[in-house]
Structures are given as structure tokens and as C-alpha cells.
Amino acid sequence: MSATPGGAARDAFRSAFAAWERAAAEMSGAAVRDPRTLELGAGLMRAHLLWRRAATDAWAAAWAPFAGPKT
């Protein structure tokens, strides 16, 4: 503990911030394991990947007429 008023404020901030960090870590730890979060995250990721694969395939298809038969 600090003897000065500024030091006391700093100590109070540190302990409050440490408590917030612990609580935030616990909450986020629980959230990322929650089955609903997992389902939602998996759905969003799948949508993103499908979109990205479609874009990649479209790019490849745009070149296909010029590429000729594979040897």
C-alpha cells in the first residue's frame, strides 16, 4: 500500500483493474466454450469460407477457357 494520496489512487486502480481482468477472462473463457457460441461461430466461419471458396473458384473458372486441356 502507498502512503501518498496519488499512490493510494494508483493502488485502488490496480486492484480494481486486476479484478476486472479476472472477471473478463472468466466470462470470455466460459463464452468461447458455450455450445451456442460454438454453433454460431462455426456457422459464421462456414459462411465466410463458402463465400471465399466461391470467389476462388470463380477466379479459376475465369481462366479456364484460356488454360486448355490439362496435360
Binding site: E39, A42, M45, L50, T56
Partner: peptide, 16 residues
């Protein structure tokens, strides 16, 4: 948990 087979398709990710 995140990479469970029912949640994540590595082949789709790499195709993309």
C-alpha cells in the same frame, strides 16, 4: 472444441 469435426471443415478452409 473449436476444431470438432461437426463444427469445422479443414478441407473447406484450405479449398478457400
Amino acid at each position: 472444441d473449436w476444431t470438432r469435426r461437426d463444427l469445422f471443415d479443414a478441407d473447406l478452409a484450405m479449398d478457400a
